[in-house]
Design a protein around this nucleic acid. Structure first.
Length: 693
DNA sequence: CACTAGTCGTCAT
DNA sequence: CGACTAGTG
């Protein structure tokens, strides 16, 4: 199905291209698209569940085209239908059968033209076709077969996400929704012409806030609301209205967004079933099971938390079903390795398998040594905290977690370690502030300012964090991108996989409920001559390059005007130093060193502390907790939340301005009730590799 | 103007 | 499954 009427709205993300541009690359192929087109020419045979050479030669043309350009081809097949789709699947097969019967009846009447129509609507990618094509195409050098555990879309997106494939040939809009960065549409096997979709151009399709602060998650919500495979969509809401909605609503609590905001805007009667459907759809896009050729096993598209996020659990939890059941379950490793090659029956002796990994040539993605030493890159990395619950000194722990909106994050907890002298901290800050390096200064990798409750010392008054980061594209030697704002997780709460309830409470307390991310510029803007705009980081770990968008002669409508001031007005208390925040184009305006007392305000700690994978370091800052409670409890009467949302801002300033908050204030702010609670954080470097796992 | 629902065509000559 | 279109609010 894909997303209805999505592609016409995304024209700006496409450009005419040619397959030449992908010479020598690895190309994933959504073979079901091609097969469906081929079935036009052999509908009768396919509908009758027979084989035909027609679709073989048809697909072969595309393969040959790619091979001519020395591409490595990965043909990806659909596997098992997702649990959530099994209903529609059954109704489809029954419709096909009735179409087939009508077709056969018409044949007997001699009406072959009419019969052909019914044959066409009776075709499907049967196991006969799958086995036939795999048998044929698995013989071709530089052509890999990969049968996805579930949907080919998710599988192809996974290949792309981990740089196993450089681009994907498809005609389906779902691939966009999975966050693919480069897609080849409308490929012509004869001329090699095509339309190339690029994720980096996606913001061009929007205006207003959606463009300036493009978030792929919001884009996903938009598509789901329009209607997708797993969710029928909100009636009367298409692309335009959806964009209008998300221009004004940037909340991070999806339940509230649906039940309150969306209802208020469109008076669409959102039921609990709708909420469930939306959430299911969202998480199916995020967490669907795919096969990982790197680790040779099935994994979730993005790492799954062990439990549902607390806010959504009431809508998703089914007592008799495992968590994330709707997004597929992970098969035993041995079975998945056999199925992925095209072996259908895993109940038989593996020796009888038609396709064996060991027998495959070394160029194959399934060859045992093809990706030796290469691990999947971590999904999203965050953070920062250490607590008394730390394990042995020196050890690191990670917890997978999700924010309210379901974006995966990784929370790192570090144990107390040796104190770093204050002078060194300061040095670390100033050095880092002066230049943005794509690597980490040694001093910054060190834990700083740690006080363990075990040593009975007071909780520290400072938390270290990062304000901005540089993004280095995966597998790319390009020069680093401009610093990006890391504010996308603002206002979320997390549920942790661990039993560490203290830490969980703490983290949730930190990720304060609030309306929208602060529109803030990085503390350090690169001092380059290029007038680049800071890119936006997107939780799902895609990186948008927002360059050139400003020059695009497109609709800067009213939504542009209202976005920022609104927010400023909504702030608790405004501070003069805040003003540097709003303009995104001030890279030239603020290259000079501001020495100190540069104060910034945030609505949540999370804004400080998101770290993209492979993202090198950033500028450490001090976070100070305001003494006064700026609580306003006007918002969100959400169900089942134990802790009342705290609404106040954290003040961030360079190290020099320490004073201000007493240990008691900090303790009071963070303490979940348990005393002896030591909190610190540190500046962290996450390597490109997966060492921290 | 925006959205919806329905129909048509996908091949290859 | 997308493209296209006629019809509706």
């Amino acid at each position: 199905m894909g997303i209805k009427t999505l592609l016409p709205s995304l024209k700006r993300a496409f450009s005419p291209g040619s397959i030449e541009a992908f010479a020598n690359k690895t190309i994933g192929v959504d073979i079901s698209c091609i097969l469906h087109r081929a079935f036009s020419g052999c509908a009768q045979e396919v509908a009758r569940n027979e084989t035909s050479d027609f679709y073989i030669t048809f697909v072969r043309r595309y393969i040959d085209l790619l091979l001519r350009y020395n591409c490595h081809v990965i043909l990806v097949y659909d596997g098992q239908p997702l649990p959530s789709k099994r209903g529609t699947n059954a109704s489809r097969t029954s419709r096909r059968e009735s179409n087939l019967q009508k077709a056969e009846a018409l044949v007997l009447q001699g009406n072959s033209n009419e019969a052909y129509k019914y044959f066409q609507s009776a075709t499907s990618i049967t196991s006969v076709v799958v086995e036939h094509t795999i048998a044929e195409f698995s013989k071709i050098p530089n052509v890999d077969i990969l049968v996805a555990p579930y949907e080919a879309d998710a599988q192809l997106a996974y290949l792309m996400k981990h740089n196993i494939a450089d681009a994907v040939v498809t005609d389906d809009s779902d691939l966009i929704l999975f966050g693919c960065s480069t897609l080849i549409y409308k490929l012509n096997w004869n001329t090699g012409s095509c339309e190339v979709y690029e994720l980096s151009k996606l913001p061009l399709c929007f205006s207003g806030y959606m463009r300036r602060k493009f978030s792929f998650d919001t884009f996903r919500y938009l598509c789901i609301i329009m209607g997708c495979d797993y969710f029928p969509g909100i009636s009367k809401v298409g692309f335009k209205k959806g964009v209008e909605f998300f221009d004004c609503n940037r909340g991070t609590n999806l339940v509230k967004m649906l039940k309150q905001d969306l209802n208020a805007k469109f008076s669409a009667g959102i039921t609990d079933e709708d909420v469930q459907g939306f959430l299911t759809a969202n998480f199916t896009f995020l967490y669907q099971v795919v096969y990982c050729p790197l680790s040779k096993k099935e994994v979730a598209f993005t790492e799954r938390p062990d439990e549902y996020p607390l806010t959504y659990a009431p809508y998703l939890k089914r007592s008799n079903l495992p968590v994330w059941h709707f997004a597929g379950s992970i098969s035993p490793e041995e079975d998945s390795c056999r199925k992925v090659l095209g072996n259908r029956d895993t109940t038989v002796d593996p020796k009888l398998d038609k396709y064996k990994r060991e027998l495959l040539p070394k160029w194959s993605v399934h060859h045992p040594e093809k990706f030796a030493g290469r691990a999947p890159t971590a999904d999203a990395d965050v953070v920062f905290l250490s607590s008394q619950a730390s394990p042995a000194a020196g050890a690191k722990r990670t917890h997978s977690a999700t924010t309210n909106t379901g974006e995966p994050v990784r929370v790192l907890f570090t144990p107390p370690q040796a104190k770093v002298p204050r002078t060194q901290q300061t040095t670390a800050f100033t050095t880092q502030a002066s230049t943005i390096q794509p690597r980490v200064d040694k001093t910054q990798s060190q834990p700083v300012s740690l006080r363990s409750p075990a040593t009975n010392k007071k909780p520290p008054a400072s938390i270290w964090g990062r304000l901005s980061a540089q993004v280095v594209k995966k597998n790319s030697q390009e020069s680093p991108q401009p610093p990006v704002r890391l504010n996308t997780f603002a206002g979320n709460s997390v549920s942790l996989a661990s039993q560490d309830s203290i830490t969980e409470k703490l983290v949730n307390k930190l990720l304060i409920q609030h309306k929208e991310p602060i529109d803030e510029r990085p503390e350090d803007t690169e001092n380059t001559s290029k007038p680049e705009k800071p890119s936006e980081i997107v939780p799902e770990t895609q990186v948008m390059s927002v360059d050139k968008i400003a020059d695009e002669p497109a609709l800067l409508k009213s939504s542009d005007v209202k976005a920022t001031p609104d927010k400023e007005a909504a702030g608790v208390d405004e501070n003069a130093a805040d003003k540097s925040t709003t303009t995104p184009d001030s890279s030239t305006a603020t290259p000079k060193r501001r020495s100190r007392h540069q104060v910034r305000r945030f609505d949540s700690f999370a804004q400080l502390e998101i770290l993209h994978r492979q993202m090198p370091l950033i500028s450490p800052v001090r976070v100070e907790i305001p003494r006064s409670r700026g609580s306003s409890s006007q918002s969100s009467p959400k169900p089942g939340t134990s802790s009342t949302p705290i609404k106040r801002r954290l003040t961030v300033s360079p190290l020099e301005t320490s004073s201000r908050n007493s240990p008691e204030a900090v303790k009071k702010f963070f303490s979940p009730g348990t005393e002896g609670f030591g909190l610190t954080s540190k500046v962290y470097q996450l390597n490109a590799t997966n060492k921290l796992l």
